[in-house]
Design a protein around this nucleic acid. Structure first.
Lengths: 192, 192
DNA sequence: AAAAGAAATTACCATATGGTAATTTTTTTT
DNA sequence: AAAAAAAATTACCATATGGTAATTTCTTTT
């Protein structure tokens, strides 16, 4: 149940067996069915979640009813509306499961306790948000400079597992194009 | 010289007079002439900079030679290639001055000393990166869902000072459109 | 103040992507 | 296995934005 998380943390911060065991106490395990929500826009995000199996997505719905995906989270990734989680403000995004999924949830107060009991994890969470920041910068840069086709090819290269695991219409939403456009782009690529 | 920084920090973290004075010791003041570089892509980003006066920008140049602006920093804002600064890896972006500017620079080792001498600042820097993360998420969401015209109007609303201070072609670059397109959009807006 | 350089505007056509709708294929539910 | 639902594809036209180039306005340098 915690073996994936153990490797995940240990590849970033060195914890003793005992320290890691303390950390695990603060997580709650939860199974999500496909389409089940972990967070609704407007609610406060109570957890950050570590994905053990399956796949979730964080997205918003615009005023025309169209979904826009900010992030996928497959196994070995974290998911939350970090702003809402940290500030207690209502969430700007929804989070739901694209497939049946197992997640480990860390509540805000549990996280604070965890950090008290295992201060090394401060560093871990700093590294996490830094990695997130880097990825966001790159995605912004790509949205400014790359065509839909280029963004699609970069996506495949950067996230090969997501590419395999996630339906095309979801990838299109992540890339900021319609499923029809992505289908056309794919066709053009095969013809090259 | 430090009064702006003082208000900036105190609005986020409460420091005593003495604590703040300790912090100031770690900053280096630097004047930049318009067009002067603070960072070149490929170099390691040695500083994070707090802008006292003027305006800088963080940007990359794509393979066609076009500039794409990731961030502006006017007075009371921070600027750096955070990834490069934190990891020591070569920077992905350039930083230069759009106007003559005064900045306070904090070197990596100075920052570490500062944090040792004034641990309250840990919280400050965490809040800083969190705010950054929120802004990035919002910008990504906008790039997915909003038209160029909508992004322009949001920009004006969100950053009225930048709108006054920064040339249009730079704003266009930030929005991911050509200066000509922005000019056309502005014309259409006046006609509405 | 004059000259040079940079920024903004305008126009015309090109191209990428969107909207709508119909069809086919794949997946899920019964 | 059949039926229903969802996803992917295709096509046709519409629209937003880009590319190029010329002109005007504004800013900086001499």
């Amino acid at each position: 149940m915690f073996s994936l998380l153990k490797n995940h943390i240990n590849s970033r911060v060195l914890l003793t067996e005992e320290e890691f065991n303390i950390c695990t106490k603060f997580f709650i395990s939860k199974k999500l069915k496909k389409h089940q929500f972990l967070l609704n826009e407007g609610d406060v995000c109570k957890y950050i979640g570590f994905v053990n199996t399956g796949c979730l997505r964080e997205y918003k719905i615009d005023n025309k009813g169209v979904e826009h995906i900010l992030q996928f989270a497959i196994e070995d990734w974290w998911v939350s509306d970090l702003n809402s989680f940290l500030t207690g403000l209502p969430a700007s995004y929804n989070i739901d499961a694209l497939q049946d999924s197992d997640v480990l949830l860390l509540e805000k107060s549990a996280r604070e306790e965890l950090l008290k009991n295992c201060p090394k994890m401060e560093r871990f969470f700093r590294l996490l948000i830094e990695a997130n920041h880097v990825a966001s910068q790159r995605r912004i840069a790509d949205s400014l400079s790359a065509s839909a086709e280029e963004r699609y090819l970069k996506f495949i290269k950067t996230y090969p597992k997501l590419f395999e695991q996630v339906p095309q219409n979801q990838i299109a939403s992540y890339l900021g194009i319609t499923p029809q456009s992505l289908s056309r782009i794919r066709k053009e690529l095969t013809q090259k």
